[in-house]
Every structure is written in structure tokens, then in C-alpha cells.
């Protein structure tokens, strides 16, 4: 699936892209289909099997799409976190400024 990008530099991953849209749109469907599908499956309803299977497939696809991007963002941000935390503590102790 060449139209899905799975190789990101940290800076590129910071920008909103179609991979984010895919995750945001598919994620609610994943929750809804798993909820309804599992409930109906427990009552052995054929519709339940279909909804649950589609829900699981969507979930796997969604994380396949978004995981590389989240990994890239995280690795970049951890390097800056220390400085940001220091600044946060300065705001917290505002009397010292």
C-alpha cells in the first residue's frame, strides 16, 4: 500500500497528514463495531460475527497506519522534554521569577 507512508522523520511526523485522518476516522468505527459485534456474537447472531471481524480488521489497519508516525513523534519529543519540564517548574513556582 504505497499511498500509506510508514517512514517518517520526527519533523515530518509533527505535521498533520492523511495518516492522522485515517486514524481519527477509523477509530470511532473500530469502537462501535467491536462493541455491537461482540455483544451480538455472544448471543450467536451472524451479524455479530461480521461486525466484530470488520471491527478487528479496522483496528489492526489503523495501528499499522499510525504507529510509525507516533513512534517518530515520541522519539523526537523525548529529547526536548527535559527543557520543557524545567520551564514548567518555573511557571509553577511563579514567585521566584
Amino acid at each position: 500500500m504505497g499511498w500509506i507512508r510508514r517512514d517518517w522523520t520526527p519533523h515530518e511526523a509533527d505535521e498533520w497528514s492523511k495518516e492522522d485522518w485515517i486514524a481519527v476516522i477509523l477509530s470511532p468505527f473500530s469502537y462501535i463495531l467491536i462493541t455491537m459485534g461482540l455483544a451480538l456474537t455472544l448471543f450467536l447472531q451472524p451479524l455479530g460475527y461480521i461486525l466484530l471481524a470488520v471491527g478487528i480488521a479496522i483496528t489492526i489497519f489503523l495501528f499499522w497506519v499510525i504507529d510509525p508516525k507516533l513512534t517518530a513523534i515520541s522519539s523526537e519529543y523525548e529529547k526536548k522534554q527535559r527543557q520543557y519540564l524545567k520551564e514548567l517548574e518555573q511557571i509553577q513556582r511563579w514567585e521566584e521569577e
Partner: peptide, 29 residues
């Protein structure tokens, strides 16, 4: 510990909640 872990914790924690709800629904009916 990082952004990815935060995202995953929210998504999968709630996924467990919705699975729980479906299992509960069976018991209630």
C-alpha cells in the same frame, strides 16, 4: 513515558472498557 505510550494507554484502556460492556450486556439480558 512518552507520547506514543500516552496515546496507546488511552486507546487500549477504553477498548477494554467497551469489551467489558458487551460482556456485561450478555449477563444483564
Amino acid at each position: 513515558r512518552n507520547i506514543k505510550d500516552a496515546s496507546y494507554s488511552i486507546w487500549w484502556g477504553t477498548a477494554a472498557v467497551i469489551v467489558r460492556n458487551s460482556i456485561w450486556a450478555f449477563a444483564v439480558l
